[in-house]
Amino acid sequence: MSGERDVLVIGFLSRWCAGIAAETAGVNRIKYSPNIVFINLPCVSRLNPSHVVDAFLNGIDGVLIGGCLPPGNCHYKTGNFKAFKRMYLLKKLMAQFGVEPERVKMDWFVTPQYEKIARVADSFVEEIRRLGPVMSRGEA
């Protein structure tokens, strides 16, 4: 497979805020790029940095993390802060390995922000298209 292929992005969403926002985007028929596939988690703090790296190793080109808007909206009180610290450090680490840190994006939502989630998904897919595929998929 060549580097020409279109990009594929995964969005890990907290099911309480970003997840509901994504669902509401559907109800309101807000279109966004189909190149992003969402996985709902109880909380983005469930995500381990190695899940993100595993995604890249499997040819996923970008990882979006949609958590609850701080400070007061996290369903589990402080999960968003945990996710932020982990992903912030992971991005610094990725840069040292020559893997574009822009391939990981964190954003924060409250449930009514369904237009925002569509907009963020689109702009992230565009950003990843600009960066190109993380590698030829299927090589790992």
Binding site: L8, I39, L41, H51, D54, A55, N58, G59, R137
Partner: peptide
């Protein structure tokens, strides 16, 4: 581990999406 959402399960979901 988190029951029914283990590290392995998350990675397997990612793999399935990518594959």
């Amino acid at each position: 581990e988190l029951r029914n959402l283990t590290d392995k399960q998350i990675t397997n979901m990612v793999k399935a999406i990518a594959r």
